[in-house]
C-alpha cells in the first residue's frame, strides 16, 4: 500500500479563525494514527493572503506533524472550484490514507467534489471514527434520520469521511508538536470560476447564539400560538445562555426563520440540553434533536409523544411555567 498518513482539511471561518470542528478532528485523528502504528497527521489550510499566525498556533498546539498552507487573495471567499482543485492537488501529491473534513456547510459542499474526482469513497456526516482489525477506516453515521446507524468501509484510497461538528471531542490535553509548516502555491490560474458571491447577509440570532453552536436550545412549537411565545422563550434562552429553536409548524406560521428550524427539513442539533416548549414531538421533529444529551419537555397534553423521549416532562402551560422559571432563575 502506498497511501500513508491522515490529512485533515482545516476549514477557516469567514472571520478568519479555525473552524472548531478542526480541533475535534485533530483529536480523533491522533487516535486513528496511533491505531495505524503512528502515522503522520497533517492539515491543509486554504485562506486569503492575510495574517494566519493564530491559525498556525492552534494547529501547532493540537498535534499536527505537518501543516500545508495555501494563501492567495483569490481564496478570501470560499469557492468550490478553487478550493476543490487545491485539495485534490495536495491529495494527489502526498497520497494520504485517510482524509477527514468537517461536515459543515462548506465541508459538505467541498468533500463530494473531491471524492468523485478521485473516484474514492466518502462517508457523510459521521459521528464516530475507528480503525478496524484490517487497518481500515470504519466510519459510523446515522441514517434514516438517526433511526439506524451504519458503519461504512471504503475499498479505495484515500478513505474519506466528513464528520459532524460537535460530536467528537477536542482533546483536553492536546500535544504540542514541532509542526512543520509547508507553504504551497495554488495552481488555480486555469480554473474557471463560474460561481460569484454577490452579497452576504449575516444572520444575527436574537440571543446572539447560533443554534448549531449552542450547548442549550430552547425550542418552541405551534402550541405557542403566536410569535410572542418565541419572545418568551428567547428570554429563557438568554437567562440560560442558550439559543432559540423552532418546530416546522412554528416556522410555517411565520413566527421564526427557517434557519432555526429543527428536524428533518431543518437542522440536526445535539446540544447538552434541549427544552421543547409546546412541541408535540412528531418524528420529523424528533429526528433533529433526539441525540441531545438531555431533553426537557413542557406540554399541555400529557399524551404528547415528546414525553416519550424527554428526560423530564412537565404537563402544563408554557405561558404559565416559563415566566415562573425565568423569575426563579434571575
Amino acid at each position: 500500500m502506498t497511501n500513508q498518513g491522515i490529512l485533515i482539511y482545516a476549514e477557516v471561518t469567514r472571520e478568519g479563525d479555525l473552524a472548531s470542528v478542526v480541533l475535534e478532528l485533530a483529536n480523533s485523528a491522533q487516535n486513528l494514527a496511533a491505531k495505524l502504528g503512528g502515522q503522520e497527521v497533517s492539515a491543509l489550510v486554504v485562506t486569503n493572503a492575510g495574517d494566519i499566525e493564530h491559525v498556525k498556533s492552534d494547529l501547532k498546539s493540537n498535534g499536527f506533524d505537518k501543516v500545508y498552507i495555501v494563501q492567495d487573495e483569490r481564496l478570501a471567499i470560499y469557492s468550490t472550484e478553487f478550493y476543490s482543485k487545491i485539495v485534490i492537488d495536495l491529495i494527489n501529491e502526498i497520497k494520504p490514507e485517510i482524509v477527514l473534513i468537517g461536515a459543515t456547510t462548506q465541508g459538505r459542499d467541498l468533500a463530494p467534489r473531491i471524492s468523485s474526482s478521485l473516484n474514492t469513497g466518502l462517508t457523510a456526516d459521521c459521528t464516530s471514527l475507528d480503525i478496524n482489525e484490517k487497518g481500515m477506516l470504519a466510519a459510523t453515521r446515522p441514517t434514516f434520520g438517526g433511526n439506524l446507524m451504519a458503519t461504512i468501509l471504503c475499498k479505495n484510497f484515500p478513505q474519506m469521511a466528513s464528520v459532524r461538528p460537535k460530536v467528537l471531542k477536542k482533546s483536553t490535553f492536546p500535544i504540542e508538536k514541532d509542526t512543520q509548516f509547508i507553504e504551497i502555491k495554488p495552481e488555480i490560474d486555469n480554473v474557471e470560476k463560474k460561481v460569484e458571491l454577490v452579497e452576504f447577509i449575516k444572520n444575527i440570532p436574537s440571543t446572539g447564539k447560533r443554534i448549531d453552536e449552542s450547548e442549550i436550545i430552547v425550542a418552541g412549537g405551534k402550541g405557542l400560538k403566536s410569535a410572542d411565545g418565541l419572545k418568551l422563550l428567547e428570554e429563557l434562552a438568554n437567562v440560560l445562555g442558550g439559543a432559540v429553536g423552532a418546530s416546522r409548524a412554528a416556522v410555517d406560521a411565520g413566527w421564526a426563520d427557517h434557519s432555526i428550524q429543527v428536524g428533518q427539513t431543518g437542522k440536526t442539533v445535539m446540544p447538552k440540553l434541549y427544552i421543547a416548549c409546546a412541541i408535540s414531538g412528531a418524528i420529523q421533529h424528533t429526528v433533529g434533536m433526539n441525540s441531545s444529551e438531555k431533553i426537557i419537555a413542557i406540554n399541555k397534553d400529557p399524551k404528547a409523544p415528546i414525553f416519550q423521549i424527554a428526560d423530564i416532562g412537565i404537563v402544563g402551560d408554557v405561558y404559565e411555567i416559563v415566566p415562573e422559571l425565568i423569575e426563579m432563575l434571575k
Binding site: N119, N132, A138, T143, M149, A150, I152, L153
Partner: peptide, 8 residues
C-alpha cells in the same frame, strides 16, 4: 467504493 459493513 464504499459498502455498509454493519448496520445497527
Amino acid at each position: 467504493p464504499t459498502y455498509v459493513s454493519k448496520a445497527f
